[in-house]
Structure formats: structure tokens, C-alpha cells
């Protein structure tokens, strides 16, 4: 009986509180994502700007694009979560670098998103929107998407210039290797969801991180400057999981 009373009281209190805030708390929250791509702290250009890779090689980027998917907002206190269904977003340094999602308003202090495409959607490419195969992100010999593409001109110790090609997808269609979750603490940056009709999440990607942490990638020590699968791709995927993204 006592418990019931407490329960009733708390419900009354809760609803009362909600009533008070009714005008202020919107039913839905719009989250605006934007992505900025940096090289050694400097926003990248795809023209003729030369950057230095962590191993001292010079690199002129020409193409940088990747998929963001399976975005989930979480409440670390009560384990509530909301996943954005059918959300596959191609981010392209030469094109679209922002998108918005809308979700029912609730308190969330954590964001998780994935680089790449989940197995369910990676087994066919007759898809539309950002998954349209006309985005130059599908393999032509193995059904599935490239999760992350970095291409450019690479040079080391005045050797001949060659093309650095990084194409990372699923090495093995039977698992979700290289499909990596990235977790962002919203609270730490004062970006909790729950009280505003819209919120801007500005994410930065520091490209040098692709070559450092936890795996040190020295292109000049590799057999080839094309990385399109295999162990090096797996190492780079672990690097994009770890340190590539941060919330501004």
C-alpha cells in the first residue's frame, strides 16, 4: 500500500512536472550533424594542398568519403535508447557533409554511430538514396559497399609519386569486420538531448588518426600504396574506431 502511494505520488509529480513544461519541451528533437575533416588540425582541401602523414610522407588528398549509419542515442542512467532506422548517410569532403535526423524528445547523454554498412544492407546494392550505387561507393566485383574511401597523391623521400588508395569495406561478407561503432559522450560537451527542439552536433575527423592509433601505419613500409582489404585495412578500421572522430 505504501509502495502504491509512493508510485501514485511520483506519477502525479511526474505528470505535473510534464504539464508545467508542456509548452517548453518539444515532442521531437531535430539533431543536425555536421562533419569537418582535418589534417594535422587544418581543414582539408582536395585541391593541391600537401599534408604530412605521421610517418613523414607527403600526401595530397583527392577524395575522402565514408558512410555513417546505425545512429543510436542512449541514456546511460536508465539504458533507454533510440535508434534512427534506415539511416545511411554518405559524408563526402567534396559534397554533402551534414544531415539531420529527428527523434521523439527524451533525455540522452550518449551517441553511438557506425562507420560503414551493416550486414543486412551490405548484401545487395540495388538501393536508393545515399546507398544508390551511383555514389562510387560499391565494389564492382564483390557485392557490398566501401565504408571509407581516402585517395590522393603520395610521395616519400622524393621517390616517384604514386597514388595512395585506401578503400575499406567488409573483408568478409559473413561477418561485419571493419563495420565499427563510435561512441560519443554528449554530456561531456554539454550536448545532452532532452530540452531543446534542435541541437547541433559538430563532429571533427582528424585524418592523421587513420595512420596512428592504435595501429601505426607507415605507407612506405607496405608492399603497395593500394589498401583495399586485408590486414592493413583491418588496422585502419580499428584506427577509425578509436581516435578519428571528436565532438566539438
Amino acid at each position: 500500500m505504501k509502495k502504491l502511494a509512493i508510485l501514485l505520488l511520483s506519477i502525479i509529480g511526474f505528470t505535473a512536472c510534464q504539464n508545467d513544461d508542456k509548452d517548453r519541451i518539444p515532442a521531437e528533437t531535430e539533431v543536425n550533424f555536421s562533419f569537418t575533416h582535418l589534417f594535422n588540425g587544418e581543414e582539408i582541401e582536395l585541391k593541391n594542398q600537401t599534408y604530412t602523414l605521421p610517418a613523414g610522407e607527403s600526401f595530397i588528398p583527392r577524395k575522402f568519403k565514408y558512410y555513417i549509419s546505425n545512429i543510436t542515442f542512449e541514456n546511460s542512467q536508465n539504458d533507454a535508447a533510440y535508434k534512427i532506422e534506415d539511416g545511411y548517410f554518405l559524408i563526402d569532403q567534396a559534397g554533402k557533409k551534414e544531415f539531420s535526423v529527428t527523434l521523439p524528445t527524451a533525455e540522452y547523454d550518449k551517441l553511438t554511430f557506425f562507420i560503414g554498412i551493416d550486414k543486412a544492407r551490405n548484401l545487395s546494392t540495388d538501393q536508393v538514396g545515399d546507398l544508390d550505387p551511383n555514389n562510387d561507393m560499391v565494389w564492382n566485383w564483390n557485392t557490398g559497399y566501401k565504408f571509407l574511401v581516402l585517395e590522393g597523391v603520395w610521395e616519400y623521400q622524393s621517390s616517384d609519386r604514386s597514388g595512395l588508395i585506401v578503400h575499406i569495406g567488409n573483408n568478409n561478407p559473413e561477418n561485419e569486420q571493419n563495420f565499427k561503432a563510435i561512441s560519443i559522450n554528449l554530456e561531456a560537451k554539454g550536448k545532452n538531448l532532452g530540452s531543446n527542439a534542435s541541437i547541433n552536433l559538430d563532429l571533427e575527423a582528424e585524418l592523421s588518426e587513420l595512420f596512428i592509433n592504435p595501429n601505426s601505419i607507415k605507407i612506405h613500409e607496405l608492399e603497395n600504396t593500394s589498401i583495399m582489404g586485408g590486414d592493413v585495412a583491418i588496422q585502419i578500421a580499428n584506427n577509425y574506431k578509436e581516435g578519428l572522430f571528436s565532438l566539438k
Partner: peptide, 11 residues
């Protein structure tokens, strides 16, 4: 390598 005809044709 191609999982179905629908996806293959883009190759």
C-alpha cells in the same frame, strides 16, 4: 562475388 543479379549488373 556478386550476391544477386540485381547487384551484379552495376559491375
Amino acid at each position: 562475388g556478386a550476391a544477386n543479379l540485381e547487384s551484379l549488373v552495376f559491375g
